[in-house]
């Protein structure tokens, strides 16, 4: 049984699925400041990748929110299947040693 599903959203129940003239949906990721990672900010429609980037600039950085933009067509995103939440995420919950607070450091040692 797979832990991933092909798309982040459920399938659309479009009325006339065959001859859609709707622009594809894109997911937009923006690096807000130098040094930070790109973060998902939302979606939009665009006819191709170049226009998706331009639309993202116009839609999602109207208030100077970004320094770098990534776009990816929504259908190319693979996502964890919601029912599989247990197996994929729980194992790491037991690896408490990954978190700094797991270790007791004597106060005398100073900040670490």
């Amino acid at each position: 049984m797979s832990s991933v599903s092909p798309s982040p959203y459920p399938e659309t129940e479009s009325k006339e699925k065959t001859d859609r003239k709707e622009w594809p949906l894109w997911e937009i990721f923006i690096r807000g400041q130098h040094g930070l990672s790109h973060r998902h900010v939302g979606s939009l429609h665009a006819p191709d990748a170049e226009m998706a980037i331009k639309n993202a600039r116009d839609v999602y950085t109207r208030r100077n929110e970004g320094v770098s933009i990534w776009v990816v067509e929504s259908r190319h995103i693979s996502a964890t299947a919601p029912g599989e939440k247990g197996p994929l995420f729980e194992p790491s919950e037991s690896k408490v040693y990954r978190h700094p607070t797991f270790f007791d450091i004597p106060d005398e040692v100073g900040h670490m």
């Binding site: 622009w23 939009l44 429609h45 665009a46 331009k54 639309n55 116009d58 839609v59």
Partner: peptide, 11 residues
């Protein structure tokens, strides 16, 4: 013609 263009034209 489409929301994205509406927003871009306003910019």
């Amino acid at each position: 013609p489409v929301l994205e263009e509406d927003i871009a034209l306003a910019n």
